[in-house]
Each structure stands twice: as C-alpha cells, then as structure tokens.
C-alpha cells in the first residue's frame, strides 16, 4: 500500500488536467507563460507577470530541492492515523524558477530532511489512474 493511500484521489478540471495528465506519463510539467516565460503553480488562467492567457506546459527535470518542510505527528483525519509521522515538503526546481510543488520524501527519517536537501523525482502509482510526483533523497 502506498503512502497516504486514503487521500490519493484527484479531481482535475480544465486548468489542472495538463499537470495530472503529464504525471500519468511520468512527466513533471509545470505551467509557464507562453509570452513572458514566467512559471506559475498551481495553475492559473492568466500570467501574474504579464496577464497573458497563453500558456505552455514545460517539462521539468527530475532534480529538486527542499524549500521548506514539516513532519506531521498529529493525524488531522482518522484516515491518516496509521501514517504518522510523515513528512511534507515544498520542492523548488532550478529549471522552473518561481514555481514550487508540495510533495513527500519517501524512505526518509524526519531528521534527514532539511531546507536545501537535494531530491530526485520518484513516480508513485497509486492506482485508479492516480500517479503522484513524490521524491527520494538524491544520490550523489
């Protein structure tokens, strides 16, 4: 059973489906303005920098870095009571400045996670067409 399987459901709409459709193909794609090139996440209809509504979904490489993090000890819902403690990380990417995604680091102890920790993408197939971008600590 994968991490947090009770929460592994998705509800895409026209704005978010390019992200999740790419995940199904094991590609991390983030929304970028087709005019000024600024990244944005989560998806927005227009560009915060230039207001253009033309966008593209840029392929982001598999290496990220912890921007911030927490380890959750108290289960906010009964469905995650057996999962605590688990970590949540905010991940930034050199090739997508200005956009971060929320994820988890697999196979890591709480004390191993710190701001700046290098990560590598790990695709987590949760079944029912839900494929989530998760991470592992990058091997040097």
């Amino acid at each position: 059973m994968s991490l947090l399987s009770e929460l592994a459901s998705l509800h895409p709409d026209s704005l978010s489906s390019p992200f999740w459709d790419a995940c199904k193909k094991r590609e991390l794609r983030l929304q970028r303005c087709a005019d000024c090139g600024a990244f944005r996440h989560p998806p927005l209809a227009g560009c915060p920098s230039c207001a253009s509504t033309r966008d593209e979904w840029a392929l982001v490489g598999g290496r990220g870095r912890v921007y911030s993090h927490t380890t959750i000890y108290h289960p906010a819902l009964p469905t995650v009571a057996d999962e605590v403690p688990y970590n949540v990380v905010v991940v930034e990417f050199d090739d997508a400045p200005g956009a971060r995604i929320i994820s988890n680091v697999l196979d890591a102890e709480p004390e191993e996670i710190h701001v700046g920790l290098e990560l590598e993408l790990h695709w987590d197939d949760c079944g029912d067409g839900v494929v989530l971008p998760r991470f592992k600590i990058a091997q040097k």
Binding site: L7, V90, V115
Partner: peptide, 24 residues
C-alpha cells in the same frame, strides 16, 4: 482541483501549512 495539489500529499490542516512557512 485546488486541494489536489496538497491533499494527496497529506497536507490537510491549517497547522501543517503554517508550520512550513515558519520552518523557512
């Protein structure tokens, strides 16, 4: 669609979001 970007990763409560801001 909006909670899809945090809920599946177990980020589901205000204290959890704020903890990451303070951690930074």
């Amino acid at each position: 669609p909006l909670t899809d970007f945090h809920r599946p990763f177990g980020l589901i409560s205000p204290v959890q979001f704020f903890s990451m801001i303070f951690r930074r």
